[in-house]
């Protein structure tokens, strides 16, 4: 049942964990991504946020921003759930599960910055959120089209050379992940990363890049 489709892309399968019909598996590639997500989730749990220094321009004054306990707890919770979603997303063997986890990463990314009391950050988080929401359309659309044309959602089946996936589904999948995680208006996202709370804010970048890496692997293998 679990024969690896195309070993030249990601190497031999090292281990798999079946949950019903959704199988999580580790190949060298997904293992690298998984360990990286794990490392940064651990960092988010263990390290304290930084005290961001603000300079008052036109003078010598500067002050540090303390992050309130309540906000820190919320950000940490969101960062951890984002890390968990990423860990599951990079190892999953089911295309619909992958899209769901990508959408969850999008929600968590909004959540990480939502508690920051800064108008600019919130404005950009809102713009990013709108895009993330629209991004679910190509994302789920791609999964549905793949299901309709191949009759399966399992990546193990889809990766076999016999099964061909329409180009439009591949394109939609990439657009979906980019919209969900990487936010096409990257600059708005850069504005978001200005929010204080280093290990948590970094998680936004980690999760979206790892999901992108995974989707690159998926579309090349399909």
């Amino acid at each position: 049942m679990y024969n690896l489709p195309s070993p030249q892309i990601e190497g031999e399968i090292l281990a798999y964990i079946p949950f019903g019909d959704i199988v999580y598996y580790f190949s060298p590639y997904t293992l690298v991504l998984f360990i990286f997500a794990l490392t940064f989730t651990a960092l988010a749990i263990l390290s304290r946020p930084e005290k961001q220094v603000d300079i008052a321009f036109g003078g010598d004054a500067y002050y540090t921003k303390e992050i309130p306990e309540k906000q820190m707890r919320f950000q940490r919770f969101m960062a951890i759930s984002c890390g968990l979603a990423t860990m599951a997303g990079v190892t999953t063997g089911d295309i619909f599960n992958f899209t769901l986890l990508t959408a969850m990463v999008g929600i968590c990314n909004i959540g990480i910055v939502a508690s920051v009391k800064n108008k600019h950050v919130l404005d950009n988080a809102y713009e990013y959120g709108i895009l993330a929401m629209i991004g679910t359309l190509p994302l789920f659309g791609a999964a549905a089209i793949i299901l309709a044309t191949t009759g399966t959602l399992s990546l193990w089946e889809i990766f076999t050379p016999a099964v061909s996936v329409p180009v439009i589904a591949k394109a939609l999948l990439v657009i979906g992940v980019i919209g969900e995680g990487m936010a096409p208006v990257y600059v708005a996202k850069a504005e978001i990363t200005r929010a204080p709370g280093a290990p948590y804010v970094l998680m936004i970048h980690v999760s979206s890049l790892l999901m992108f890496l995974r989707v690159v692997e998926i579309i090349i293998s399909m």
Partner: peptide, 15 residues
């Protein structure tokens, strides 16, 4: 090894 893993490492460098 896989060029894809090298690509991944480049991205991790960005992170």
């Amino acid at each position: 090894g896989s060029l894809l893993i090298l690509f991944a490492i480049f991205l991790l460098h960005k992170i």
